[in-house]
């Protein structure tokens, strides 16, 4: 089954790399967003199966955005992707409904493992 994904990261470099890894794992990346607003805008037109969310974005609190994403798109699985203040922010993100956590810097294998752990 072809699954769809959206990548939210302010770094184009990170988006491109994540896009390549997701594609290798059988995902179709249907949207990329460099900011919280772009991410929410994208959700008007598409509801991806997976959202990779950089928790530190220049324009919004990642946790607020996470809540909005989950509210708008309850069927999407959100995976947090970042490293700053890992323990606290991650914990909070997982409490708020994120499914998993990818720590930067990552290898393609770590990302693949996390994707597999989502169980689909």
């Amino acid at each position: 089954m072809n699954r769809t994904a959206m990548i939210v990261d302010d770094s184009l470099f990170m988006r491109k790399i994540l896009c390549a890894i997701l594609t290798e794992n059988g995902y179709t990346v249907i949207a990329e967003a460099a900011s919280g607003i772009e991410a929410m805008k994208n959700l008007h037109s598409s509801h991806p199966d997976l959202i990779l969310l950089d928790i530190i974005l220049p324009d919004s609190s990642g946790l607020d955005l996470l809540t909005s994403l989950i509210t708008t798109c309850p069927a999407s699985k959100v995976v947090i992707c970042s490293a700053i203040g890992q323990e606290q922010v991650t914990k909070k993100a997982l409490e708020l409904g994120a499914m998993a956590f990818i720590q930067k810097p990552f290898t393609p294998e770590t990302v693949t493992d996390v994707l597999k752990s989502l169980g689909d």
Binding site: D10, F13, I84, P105, F106
Partner: peptide, 16 residues
């Protein structure tokens, strides 16, 4: 915070 974010992002990119 932003300074920190830039150093951090650069580190993450370079590590990748």
């Amino acid at each position: 915070d932003e300074l920190f974010r830039h150093a951090h992002s650069l580190k993450g990119m370079a590590a990748t």
